[in-house]
Design a protein around this nucleic acid. Structure first.
Length: 377
DNA sequence: AACCCGGGGAC
DNA sequence: GTCCCAGGGTT
């Protein structure tokens, strides 16, 4: 039995198994009709909204996306508006969502669509796949949901559901296993309701077929057709590849405040948090004396230097352990590669990553104090 | 195939 | 603390 199952995930599903899977499509659709979540891109599933939602949802939970989605389609309601937008506007709309190349690729694609597709999102899977930021999953999702084209859209949720339905023992991080499971999804797909079916598989994965030790098989409409359930191994599947440990990085963050402004620096155009703004910072933990020497080097004469509470930020592959200093300066003198920015402008125009939220949170208060100092002088 | 790229919620 | 999320691009 296990050999048969293992073989299932290393090659194409066999005809008999495909026929068994096909029978599950109907109860999954019936479950979806009763349990589908109400979402803005479902209420109004035009291609542009579906596209924006799918990009935002890449590796990002629905609850996190919702407020961003509403604001984004309000400010940039169509493809021409997206194509013409300033990069600063895009990054500000994306601030805090992460994976910032997503929004840059969104605009690259919008410009291609304006230039080469008459301003309309392509309606074929193959053409969608060619656009920047659109891979196999997203092309399938847009094609099936917005255009009702019968192609699968297998995301992390659907992948888990399929791995359990087939009792797939292979590591689902492996391309070979993904290929097989995607073929199974293709085989299951009801041609006339592809969008509903794909979304049903995702909702089933996120509401019932939960990851790790917590699947709610008691709520599942297809448990009797699920190989993992029948074998009693639903809570053991899918097999996860071990994640590698995070690297720790020590940083010193300098929050300079002068005359209601703070000093910001733009990050490089490539790499981590590309193109976002940040407080000037250095690798390693600097002592107050070292900070004072650095400020002197920058030509800044601090009225005071105060050590702030330590802050930490966890990325997927690394951790920042930050020591912070708040520096009050009487004059906002120019500093190379940096700009002095008014507090209100920081809030409205400059995109800062969440990594600095421990500092940005208090920034208005700190800047207000500099204004008071100015008035006192 | 392996690595890079954010952030946060659930447990 | 761990897991993982409506993944894609680059090398």
């Amino acid at each position: 039995m296990d050999d048969t199952v293992a073989a299932t995930c290393s090659g194409m599903p066999e005809a008999e198994q495909i026929e068994g899977l096909r029978r599950l499509a109907e109860p999954i659709l019936a479950w979806y009709e009763q349990n589908a979540r109400i979402l803005p891109w479902r209420e109004q599933p035009d291609p542009y909204r579906v596209w924006i939602s799918e990009i935002m949802l890449q590796q990002t939970r629905i609850e996190a996306v919702l407020p961003y989605f509403y604001r984004f389609v309000e400010v940039l309601p169509d493809i021409p508006a997206l194509a013409k937008a300033e990069e600063a506007t895009l990054l500000k709309l994306w601030e805090g969502l992460g994976y910032y190349n997503r929004v840059r690729n969104l605009q690259k694609a919008a410009r291609i669509i304006v230039e080469r597709h008459g301003g309309r999102l392509p309606s074929s899977y193959q053409h969608l796949l060619k656009l920047p930021g659109i891979g196999e999953y997203t092309a399938g999702a847009i094609a099936s949901i917005a255009y009702h084209i019968p192609v699968p859209a297998v995301d992390g949720n659907a992948l888990r559901v399929l791995a359990r339905l087939l009792a797939c023992r292979a590591d689902i991080a492996q391309p070979q296993a993904r290929k097989t499971l995607r073929a199974a999804a293709q085989a299951m797909l009801p041609r006339e309701r592809a969008g509903d079916f794909n979304q049903a598989m995702m909702d089933l994965g996120s509401l019932v077929c939960l990851p790790g030790p917590a699947p709610r098989c008691d709520l599942c409409p297809v448990r009797t057709g699920c190989a993992a359930y029948r074998q009693g191994v639903a809570d053991k599947l899918p097999v996860k590849s071990p994640q590698k440990p995070r690297a720790m990085q020590q940083k010193t963050v300098l929050v300079l405040a002068s005359q209601g402004k703070t000093l910001l620096r733009r990050r490089p155009a490539e790499g981590l948090l590309a193109g976002l703004w940040e407080f000037p910072n250095l690798d390693g933990w600097l002592t107050e004396k070292e900070v004072a020497a650095l400020l002197d080097e920058w030509g800044i004469c601090p009225a005071s230097v105060r050590r702030l509470a330590d802050a930490r930020h966890i990325f997927t592959h690394m951790e920042w352990h930050m020591h912070g200093y708040l520096v009050y300066a009487a004059d906002a003198l120019p500093v190379p590669n940096c700009v002095w920015v008014d507090g209100e402008a920081v809030r409205r125009e400059y995109a800062l990553p969440s990594a600095y939220s421990a500092f940005t949170r208090h920034l208005p208060r700190w800047l207000a104090e500099t204004k008071n100092n100015l008035e006192i002088h």
